[in-house]
Design a protein around this nucleic acid. Structure first.
Lengths: 350, 350
DNA sequence: GATTAGCACTCTTGCAGGCAGAGTGCTAAA
DNA sequence: TTTAGCACTCTGCCTGCAAGAGTGCTAATC
């Protein structure tokens, strides 16, 4: 005799109860008792019946009580079930969407745009916002220029689109004159402009191998230089964070040390970057509750992410970090929309 | 009869006592009682005598007790006296200096250098580090170039020295051809290279007024463009922070709200910038204890700053923020040396 | 068979009292 | 002038107690 049915056979009543419980706990932050639930769940059951159902939920590992007589709080599994099948997402107010759109204008520089997105996520959700900076592998190179800085240093300017310019300083193995540099740039521009960085690089490597002996040395140098220029994307490993301080609001005073570690991770960024990079291959909004992220530091937090696309390619991920009891019904659409708007803004500028 | 002499007549005994007290409190973080002091102050006095002297110190407002029987802690005035006339600065270990020097290598890009300095301050002191980014008014302009991005957008490249390049995107009022832009750049380069930004700007404004009618319109446009390019230093209002999370270590759990405000200020940066800009005109290390900084947010903290120079001009300020009971004898020389090293690194690259 | 009322039980929270420890201020003696 | 001694005061910690909230179980009810 099985008296605790598998989760997918949860009765409607139990589901409704869990839902009310999670909603209440997210709102109030206090363990929810049977009495409160019997009043608010809209099920017309007495507190005693509620208690029976709650005992079942506890057996299934969906809720737990901090101590004998303190009401129940959702477990990570409870949040998971809630998010997966009980949550009703509120569509965002169209004014809110409009306001977001206005702050992510396509004519902003990429860096400003990314920082705005992160800041918006944080401001709107009152939690920490984060944006993985866009990768450029599929961005078209518009123009490449060299500029001599000193004897063996040259500034490389890569024009990606009308709002984005990257530059890098390269050390050369010998001195090139301004004229030579200009020739090299012309040579490269003829060959690579209009392609994305990946294929530019492939082509350069191919040319370098294939026709090494047939070319004059300047052109060979040009190819090498171009290859170096395209190779090192100095911003590639970056993530822009915002509003970390909001997390202090949710901090239980017990765990200052945990919080410290989290803030240290925010400074280091490596951990956050790892998390975001894992999400880059997924589609749509992803939610990590508690330990699901696989990063110890985030055990007590939830993370909501969404990838954003430019020209049909996912180029980055953004999201928020907040307490496990965050208002998922609001946060999910916010993250979703922000990802779309950021993608759109980056896209409409080529 | 005056039985509490003015501060500058403090007896040697009392001074010695205050010094031991402050040192002990900085080390332990606990109020210091008369018994402890009688053992550690090296004065060969009984606890009872110590108590008499401490009562005098309390009358003078140099120490206070959190409650009736809890020993004394220094007041801000006590710290001030301690820092001004009791503190013996430990010169830094020469290995430490060497290690700092190695991490502030002159061949790094300015931005990297500044971030390193901030990170070092934070890592070495275990508090929050901050660096006001260098102003460029007195930096020599080496070269100026224009590059067309799209119809009315042009990228301006200012080469400052061999490790620093700035660029800005400007909107133009009409379309200029690449050739025209090149001519304009040549015209400007002939005229402004080798001068600092301030005099470049002055000269351009002068020329613009004086010979407006005698010039052809392209040259006038060049001057206007150059003026715009030199005018807007987009990084001018920036400060680089590091290691804010260290402050969580010293946080008394009572004041999470205070801490939150401080972290918010770190994100905003405006307040920090204001503080640092006040210090830019002073010479040498400055110390603000508690409210002395004049910024509410920093009431419970102390700030140690020092300006750094390039070519004889102060171009920025750096410093640390930490608890009032920070180890001043170590922090002061660290801030001092870091300022000198950063200045030296920036200087030796022109 | 499902639901509910009732009751004993458990745990938290807040408050009051008691006690040890640390440190002070004052006074009188050295 | 310095010190010993003593009364005093505060904190921190424990204990006990009562109220409140919530539970689990059982027996009665629909």
């Amino acid at each position: 005799m099985v008296d605790t049915p598998p989760i997918n056979e949860l009765s409607d009543r139990a589901r409704q109860l869990l839902r009310t419980l999670v909603e209440s706990y997210i709102r109030e932050g206090q363990p929810v008792g049977s009495r409160t639930l019997s009043r608010t769940a809209g099920l017309d059951l007495s507190a005693a019946s509620i208690r029976n159902i709650m005992a079942d939920l506890e057996d299934m590992g969906l809720v737990s009580s901090p101590h004998t007589s303190a009401g129940r709080i959702p477990t990570p599994a409870g949040y998971r079930l809630f998010v997966d099948s009980l949550l009703e997402i509120k569509p965002l107010d169209s004014r809110e969407v409009q306001s977001l759109r206005e702050r992510l204008r396509p004519d902003l520089e990429t860096k400003v745009l990314v920082e705005s997105a992160s800041g918006l996520l944080s401001a709107v959700t009152q939690m920490a916002g984060m944006v993985r900076v866009p990768r450029h592998e599929h961005a078209e190179l518009r123009q490449i220029e060299f500029m001599k800085l000193s004897e063996r240093r040259v500034l490389v300017i890569l024009v990606m689109n009308k709002n984005e310019v990257q530059n890098r300083i390269l050390e050369l193995d010998r001195d090139y004159s301004a004229g030579e540099l200009q020739q090299m740039a012309n040579y490269l521009n003829d060959r690579v402009v209009g392609r994305d960085l990946v294929s530019v690089r492939q082509q350069l490597l191919r040319e370098m191998k294939a026709v090494r002996e047939h070319m004059n040395s300047l052109m060979l140098a040009a190819i090498e230089l171009g290859e170096q220029a395209v190779a090192a994307d100095k911003d590639a490993d970056d993530v822009v964070l915002a509003g970390q301080f909001h997390l202090l609001d949710y901090a239980e005073l017990t765990s200052v040390e945990k919080l410290r570690q989290l803030f240290e991770a925010f400074t280091e960024k490596r951990e956050i970057l790892g998390l975001l990079d894992k999400c880059i291959s997924a589609q749509g909004v992803q939610i990590f509750i508690g330990q699901e992220s696989g990063h110890r530091i985030l055990d007590d937090y939830s993370v909501v992410t969404a990838p954003y696309e430019v020209g049909g390619h996912v180029v980055g991920v953004l999201g928020v970090i907040g307490p496990t009891r965050m208002p998922y019904d609001r946060v999910i659409p916010i993250v979703d929309i922000t990802a779309r708007l950021l993608g759109a803004a980056l896209n409409s500028r080529s």
